[in-house]
Amino acid sequence: MKVYYSGKANLLYQNFPNVHESIVFLLNKLDIDYYIPEGEKHCAEGAFNIGFKDLGRKVAEEFITKLKESGADVAISPYAAGPGLWADYIPDTFGVKLPVPFIHITEFLNEEIKKRNIEFKPYKTKYFLHHGCTVGRKMGKAEHARELLGRIPELEVVEEDHPSIGVEEFRPEDFSTCPGAWLNLTQPELAPYVTENFVRAVVLPKLPEFVGSTCANGHAGIMMGLIAGGYKKPELKYITEILQESWR
């Protein structure tokens, strides 16, 4: 099986080389044949979300071409909106289709780790898991991240809660709050306030040691919020970093 790993360029652009390294570490440990596209701009979500529909279409078509050329069987990404947009919005709007499935990295890793029955070292800490809006809310795929982290002994995972869960037919991830990283692109003046408020109102009350999101954009928003608020704790770690540190 060959994997197309999308998002490296964005991770580096958003100053997350450690997240990229942890992904590569895990892919290598799992002995996965992967392909990292060179010169990838992004998977079209930014353009679509901002409103550059034509540009989005162009980037989407480039993505399809690169994916075909790679010969990959599956595309994965640590970003949430990419797989989310490709799940319905892009195909519905433009009638284009990906040649292979595009899934979130947690779904891929969870399946591969499950297949290999891999055991992790204990990691005694409290981790706040944020669900990216498209993977969790829209695609309903929050359980992969939970299962992955649940494989680490002694790791306590906490999530955002909401009084409507249990009263109405909602799952916790349906109400996951966006940390606000998008504003850095669309309205940068507002970004520090919204991201800081997310950390203050949503994350800090849970008193975690570490925090991370299934969405690398959400992850960036949390980072911005931690910086804007001058918070030393919790420390930011992507799910793959926690997995890397717990690898036996």
């Binding site: 979300n49 901002i50 809006c133 809310r137 829209k138 409507s164 909602f170 349906d174 109400f175 996951s176 709050t177 966006c178 606000g180 998008w182 504003l183 669309t186 309205q187 507002l190 919204v194």
Partner: peptide
């Protein structure tokens, strides 16, 4: 219009 995060919590609620 450029303030919205498109996160969709409003749609859920």
């Amino acid at each position: 219009a450029f303030t919205c995060l498109l996160c969709g919590r409003c749609k859920v609620r």
